[in-house]
Amino acid sequence: MDEKLLQQNPPELEEAAMDELIRDWTALPTEILSFISSRLFLGDLIKRFRCVCKTWKLVPSLPVPCPTQCPIPQSQWLMLYRGLKKMELNFFNPLYKDTYRMDIPELSGALLRCSKDGWLLMSRGKHSVFFFNPFTKAKIDLPDLPHHYNFDAISFSCAPTSLECMVFGIYAFFDHAR
């Protein structure tokens, strides 16, 4: 038995394996793991990185994953929304020709009005407007509009997590902004 084991693991291989074992990728400082995970997007992050082990699952994502040396910021993906019935977001990276599809039942029946900084501004029905982050699934409801609204366009200035965030709707018909 012992002899067999020895044959299977020649000393140099065993040494290499031991050498690798000392390098515990789960014991890296959290900031490094965060740094790595912030370079992964969607499926790679959720299906791969976080499923590897418990430590990696708990690695917090960096709030602003914008590496200076990265040739393209991760935010530069083209998002296509096929609304109403399918609730399907498609992401396309023109440089890597990489495509992801995400099905989001939470957005059922909602209309996409604007998108910025990873957030979607959606409206549903006559009174409800809300922000939705498809990556974290965070939802921020805006106060219901008191009256039936009929904005031709709704937009926002920056991520709704920022104090600076302003939402504005435009009535094209009356030719003024509110």
């Binding site: 490094i32 790595i36 370079r39 790679d44 299906k47 990185f49 590897v52």
Partner: peptide, 18 residues
């Protein structure tokens, strides 16, 4: 250097089963 090393590690994870 931290940027390119982290990117290299992330690239190793991409598109592989966990």
């Amino acid at each position: 250097l931290l940027d390119i090393a982290a990117q290299k590690i992330a690239d190793t994870i991409k598109d592989k089963p966990h």
